[in-house]
Every structure is written in structure tokens, then in C-alpha cells.
């Protein structure tokens, strides 16, 4: 499971970075979203990967750490707001600058 998990994170981040470097606002926003997914999964993994463990101390030998899940929840909420904001900003940039390049350059 660890290998699959790590590969998923790697592919998500890789795709995200690739899209970031495309320098088109919509792709950049999608890229940032992918990176934030990868980060959220990473945070979850930092509580160690367990299945079927109780989240309470003393009930079993090992336990699932509930704190990273709370962190992920916070990070998701913040990330969601940020993505919404950057989308609105990207739309406004498209309207004002007449291009979707992040530096506001034309296509030619």
C-alpha cells in the first residue's frame, strides 16, 4: 500500500508541476489543485497508514492518529477557498488583459 500511495503522490505532484509550468492561467489553477490534493494525501500519510485501527489510545496495540485528518480537513477548506478565488481572478485577468497567459502576454 505504501508504494501505491507514494506513487500516487508522485504522479499527482508531477502532473501539478507540469501544469504550473504551462503558464496559462487555467492550467496553472488546475495544477495547483492537483498539488494541493497531493499535499492533503501527504498530510494524511503522516499519521501513518493503517486500516481498521481504533482512533483511541489504549484500545489496541496501534492506533490511527486522528490529528492529521483534522489537519487535512482544515487544509481542504482553505485550499478550496483559495482555488475558488484564483479561478475568479483568472477569469478577471482574462477579461482585463485579453489573454490567459500568466504574464499577460499575447499569443503572438
Amino acid at each position: 500500500m505504501e508504494l501505491l500511495y507514494a506513487l500516487t503522490l508522485g504522479i499527482l505532484t508531477m502532473s501539478g508541476v507540469y501544469l504550473l509550468l504551462r503558464a496559462r492561467t487555467f492550467q496553472v489553477v488546475v495544477g495547483l489543485t492537483l498539488i494541493s490534493y497531493a499535499v492533503n494525501l501527504f498530510l494524511l500519510a503522516m499519521g501513518r497508514l493503517h486500516t481498521g485501527m481504533p482512533a483511541v489510545l489504549g484500545k489496541a496495540e496501534e492506533y490511527a492518529d486522528p490529528l492529521p485528518q483534522a489537519l487535512v480537513l482544515t487544509a481542504i477548506v482553505i485550499g478550496f477557498a483559495m482555488t475558488a478565488f484564483s479561478l475568479v481572478l483568472a477569469l478577471r485577468a482574462q477579461g482585463e488583459l485579453d489573454t490567459d497567459h500568466v504574464d499577460g502576454k499575447g499569443d503572438n
Binding site: 498539488i35 501527504f42 485550499g79 478565488f85 484564483s86 485577468a93 488583459l97
Partner: peptide, 19 residues
């Protein structure tokens, strides 16, 4: 808008690194 776009996108990436 142009300056804001750079600022927002860079800081979004920075937040990911922070996490």
C-alpha cells in the same frame, strides 16, 4: 490584476510547501 495573479499563484504554491 496582473501583479495580483502572480502574487496569488506564488503564494498558493508556497502554502502547499508549508503544508
Amino acid at each position: 490584476v496582473r501583479a495580483g495573479l502572480h502574487y496569488v499563484l506564488l503564494n498558493l504554491f508556497g502554502s502547499a510547501l508549508f503544508l
